[in-house]
């Protein structure tokens, strides 16, 4: 009997609490493609540090998509069923889950895409342009090797949007350099250990013939760097370029061992939350994340009504490395 009383009390208390909180709290779900990598972990960490989350205006729930489109689909359905006020979506694939997004919008639940686009012109995008990122890193490599030589490309998981788009940009720029020949192209699935083995194998297969390495993310670039070192090759002689701007990679860039471009996880997640809140609250909402000052010159707030907010890739240099490292690690 005691148990029953307790249950009733708990139930009553929770309904009361729910009633009191609902008046001013927005329940927003963030469906991210997976939480095994550093980048998405940083993304999640910074969305939880957004001023609106800290002061309780927003209650954020993070859903881990486990790198699986169907899992993400299920999670969006769950959010619709639970009447979430809005969804911030980081899809594993641009075109997958368009159906689930359509269902959410049909129920008047705004969906904002962050980091990776959703292939629907009704979904606002806050993030970087991966094709442009690919162009930037390829252009940097072409410059470093003087526009000629054999290049290898370490790919992300084949078929994933980030891999497809980055490669598109890379190939576009490399093709403009007739002296550059792509002699190898294989996936290491964003994984440092796989990239290490792959690069070692390439170094064995093409001794002293590789002029430069394009890696589609930082983790793999760091794997490639290890391979160079273990084979006694200096990264000055065989430059590596990549993108993402992870803490370890910023350190490596500072030491001149790799070239990388930062995509700002905080800007992607907090920016997306600001745009989402503008949709929920309306014109009166003023963005509260620091990122709008940080990128004020390149990205305009536009009352939260723009169709997309394309964030800049920040080249990591020995000069700005310390500042970026602090910004990325939050320390």
């Amino acid at each position: 009997m005691k148990l029953r009383k307790l249950l009733v009390c708990m139930l009553a208390a929770s309904t009361l609490m729910a009633g009191a909180v609902e008046a001013k709290t927005y329940k927003i779900g963030a469906a991210v493609y997976g939480l095994k990598g550093q980048f998405m972990q940083a993304w999640v960490k910074s969305i939880k540090e957004h001023p609106a989350v800290k002061d309780g205006t927003v209650q954020i729930t993070v859903f881990d998509g486990n790198y699986d489109a169907n899992t993400q689909n299920n999670q969006i359905e769950t959010m619709i069923t639970q009447h979430y006020d809005a969804i911030i979506f980081v899809p594993i694939d641009t075109k997958a889950s368009v159906g689930a997004v359509r269902h959410a919008m049909a129920e008047d639940i705004p969906v904002v895409a962050s980091n990776t686009k959703v292939a629907s012109d009704k979904v606002v995008y806050v993030g970087n342009d991966d094709v442009e990122g690919g162009r930037l890193q390829a252009a940097a490599l072409a410059k470093q090797i003087g526009g000629k030589g054999n290049v290898v490309i370490i790919q992300g998981p084949i078929g994933q949007s980030a891999q497809i788009d980055r490669e598109k940009g890379e190939l576009e720029v490399l093709a403009k350099n007739p002296g550059i020949k792509i002699i190898e192209k294989k996936t290491a699935n964003w994984d440092r250990a796989q990239a290490l083995s792959l690069t070692e194998d390439w170094l064995n297969a093409h001794p002293k013939q590789i002029a430069g390495i394009v890696s589609q993310n930082d983790d793999m670039a760091l794997g490639a760097l290890q391979a160079l070192k273990s084979h006694g090759v200096s990264p000055k002689d065989v430059p590596i370029t990549s993108i993402d701007g992870m803490p370890d990679a910023i350190k490596a860039a500072q030491a001149g061992e790799i070239t990388t471009f930062l995509q700002d996880a905080q800007a992607q997640s907090q920016g997306a939350l600001d745009v989402t809140l503008a949709k929920l609250i309306g014109d009166s909402y003023k963005p509260r994340s620091v990122i709008w000052q940080r990128y004020g010159n390149q990205v305009k707030w536009a009352d939260g009504k723009a169709a997309s907010y394309i964030l800049p890739w920040v080249p990591v240099t020995p000069q700005n490395a310390d500042a970026l490292y602090k910004q990325v690690t939050g320390g």
Binding site: A69, A96, S97, V98, G99, I158, G159, Q160
Partner: peptide, 15 residues
């Protein structure tokens, strides 16, 4: 069924 649910057939599906 999975391809239809995710509105595209993905090579990395079903991992």
């Amino acid at each position: 069924v999975l391809s239809a649910r995710t509105t595209s057939a993905l090579p990395q599906a079903g991992l």
